[in-house]
């Protein structure tokens, strides 16, 4: 009983911490402590966290290298803007339709491609991501190469905050379950996993679809913050961006993905005026991390309640 009580107390404590964090930022925004450019920064940070955590489910936990994540982001962005701007639906409908559309795209692309392995899969997903972009460029209804403009800004701090927390929560809960163990076993040894009775293909598809849905969510938030979306925004360079975050954080660590997403966002922000320098630094990060620390910042380790408890008791 005592244990149970303690778990509840920890839970309530965590909820309070999250609520306080939310309120502080919300308050700072309303009184104007956070200026426009920092608002952009915070928005990008949340979107990047969602992208990195969801790609990590595919690349890190399932071990299937995908290089087309930005494609799903595009699907989510376009689908939601059609709902909100063109059809006048409320934002929540845009969000749901965006996620759903990206999930369906993930399913349609995942089923045929996930039979491939390693670098072939990487190239096929890159190809599909590019096909999504080219197709969008050729549909007049969504503005062709010019994209969709005049999108109403509906992405606010509460939406961003909620979306980020939901993404992390869903993926962490999924991974720490029997389904998550099945997903990780695919990465560890596909053949052994099959022989444990696990239909590896369907778990790859599951991870791919869930990952794509959250990429779609990121796309929705992006579109409804920055007023404008263009196919070229969602090219493979954007996909590589997300891969950099996941690799830097450590393939298979959600904590790592979050930290790396925050770091990369700030780096991007700091080097805004020097786009080329930023990309040079990115590329060097990729190379150096792969050579000297291929497991990334966190490896597959996580910061969990246990870690905090250990730090806490260590201090006392």
């Amino acid at each position: 009983m005592h244990e149970k009580k303690k778990t509840w107390l920890t839970f309530i404590f965590e909820v309070i911490v999250l609520a306080v964090l939310f309120t502080i930022v919300q308050y700072a925004m309303t009184v104007g402590l956070i200026n426009q450019s920092y608002q952009i920064n915070i928005t990008s940070m949340c979107i990047n966290i969602i992208l990195a955590v969801s790609l990590n489910l595919i690349n890190g936990f399932t071990g299937q290298l995908s290089l087309g994540h930005a494609g799903f982001m595009a699907v989510g962005a376009y689908a939601s803007v059609i709902m909100t701007n063109n059809l006048g639906m409320p934002f929540i409908v845009g969000i749901l339709v965006g996620c759903l559309a990206a999930g369906i795209a993930g399913f349609l692309i995942g089923v045929p491609t996930l039979r491939l392995k390693g670098d072939y899969l990487a190239i096929a997903t890159l190809g599909f991501g590019e096909i999504i972009r080219v197709v969008l460029q050729n549909i007049d209804y969504v503005g062709g190469p010019a994209g969709m403009v005049g999108i109403t800004r509906l992405t606010s701090w509460p939406w961003l905050y909620a979306a980020t927390i939901v993404t992390i929560l869903v993926i962490v809960n999924l991974i720490n379950s029997s389904y998550g163990r099945a997903i990780i076993s695919v990465r560890e040894d596909e053949i052994a996993s099959e022989l444990m009775g696990i239909n590896t293909t369907s778990y790859k598809v599951l991870a791919f679809v869930v990952g794509a849905m959250f990429a779609g969510l990121a796309g929705v938030l992006y579109a409804h913050f920055f007023y404008i979306i263009k196919p070229e925004t969602f090219g493979f360079l954007k996909s590589f961006d997300i891969v950099v975050m996941v690799v830097l954080g450590g393939l298979g660590s959600t904590t790592g993905a979050v930290i790396a997403a925050i770091f990369i966002t700030f780096l991007t922000f700091a080097l805004q005026k020097y786009a080329a320098v930023r990309m040079i630094i990115y590329s060097l990060i990729l190379i150096i991390v792969m050579i000297y620390r291929p497991q990334g910042l966190m490896g597959s380790k996580e910061l969990t309640r246990k870690t905090f408890a250990r730090i806490w008791s260590g201090k006392k």
Partner: peptide, 24 residues
């Protein structure tokens, strides 16, 4: 062919997944 990076108990737990009795 163990699941090398996983804990000993997780290796065994994976075998029970095919009969898992809770849903997604």
């Amino acid at each position: 062919r163990l699941f090398k990076d996983l804990s000993v108990i997780d290796n065994v737990k994976i075998a029970f997944h095919k009969n898992v009795n809770y849903n997604l």
